[in-house]
Structure formats: C-alpha cells, structure tokens
C-alpha cells in the first residue's frame, strides 16, 4: 500500500512540475517572433527537466540515466514527427495532420526501444579491463652436464 501511494505521489508531482515547466517555456515562446523561432520552444526540454528532477529526488540517478537513454529514442521520433507533420498539416488540416504524424513517433519509439537498449550512442558504463593472463611457468630441461 505504501509503495503504491509513493508511486501515485511521484506521478502527481511529475504532472504538476511538468505543467509549470511547460508554462515557463510557453511564456518564453510568446515573447519571440517570428513564429518559427517560437516553435523551437514547443520542442523545449520542459517536460524532461520536470520529470528528471522529480525522478532524481525520488528514485535516484540510475533511473535518470535510464530515462535519458529512453528520451534519446523519443527525441529522434519527435524529429521525424515534425518532418512528416509539416506536409500533413497542409494536406489534412491541423488536428488530423498532427494526430496522423503521431504514428511515426510511435513506430520510431517502439523500434528504438527494442533495438537500442543503451540509447542512440550505445553509452555503456566504463568496462573494467580483465586481468592479464599470467604466463605459465616455464619448465626448462636441466642444463647439459659439463664434459670437462
């Protein structure tokens, strides 16, 4: 019961923090023109910052690392989403075009999650070098006896 409560608290904290950070980035975007530059802030790390801070406080750094690896895949999907969404908006309108392009994000996320467990760069913890094998003790034949 206590663990479930903790998980609910974690999700609620992430939701509140995410909402606040999104508003902060939206306020920055409102101050910017042209619209294309404001659009940069629609792909700002607002949700990521909020979630990673809460994750670090509750679950610790290993979970932040795992989240960042997953986020690399999600961000790649987001890039492809934008490239596909732009023509779809013109063809199908805002809602239908933007929603249809979500399929691209879903495919990239699912494929990347399956195929790239270490993220895009294959970041791994530093490997500990294995100890060098010790040479086997040489068994030399006894020296030849002197004749003189």
């Amino acid at each position: 019961m206590g663990e479930v409560t903790d998980q609910i608290v974690e999700v609620v904290l992430k939701a509140l923090a995410g909402g606040v950070f999104v508003l902060a980035f939206a306020a920055l975007a409102e101050m910017l023109t042209p619209k294309r530059l404001a659009g940069v802030f629609c792909a700002g790390p607002s949700v990521a910052l909020a979630s990673l801070i809460v994750t670090a406080g509750i679950a610790g750094v290993p979970d932040v690392l795992a989240s960042a690896r997953g986020m690399q895949i999600g961000a790649l999907g987001f890039t492809l989403y934008c490239l596909i969404a732009a023509p779809l908006l013109r063809r199908w309108g805002a809602w239908r075009g933007a929603l249809a392009a979500l399929a691209v994000w879903g495919v990239v996320a699912a494929a990347g999650y399956t195929l790239a467990p270490q993220g895009l760069l294959g970041v791994r913890p530093p490997a500990v070098p294995a100890p060098l094998p010790q040479p086997a003790a040489l068994e030399l034949p006894p020296p030849p006896a002197r004749l003189s």
Binding site: K35, R36, L37, A38, G39, V40, F41, C42, A43, G44, P45, A48, A68, R69, M71, Q72, G74, A75, L76, F78, T79, Y81, C82, L83, A85, A86, L89, A98, G119, L120, L121, V123
Partner: peptide
C-alpha cells in the same frame, strides 16, 4: 510552428545525450 519545432527536437536529442 512545426518547422521551428524541428530544430528544437534536434536539440532535445543533444539534451538527452
């Protein structure tokens, strides 16, 4: 907006890395 967000998403990859 979407065109601008494309640049932001490349930045997001950098953020996560």
């Amino acid at each position: 907006d979407v065109a601008g967000a494309t640049f932001g998403t490349v930045g997001l990859i950098g953020f996560a890395v």
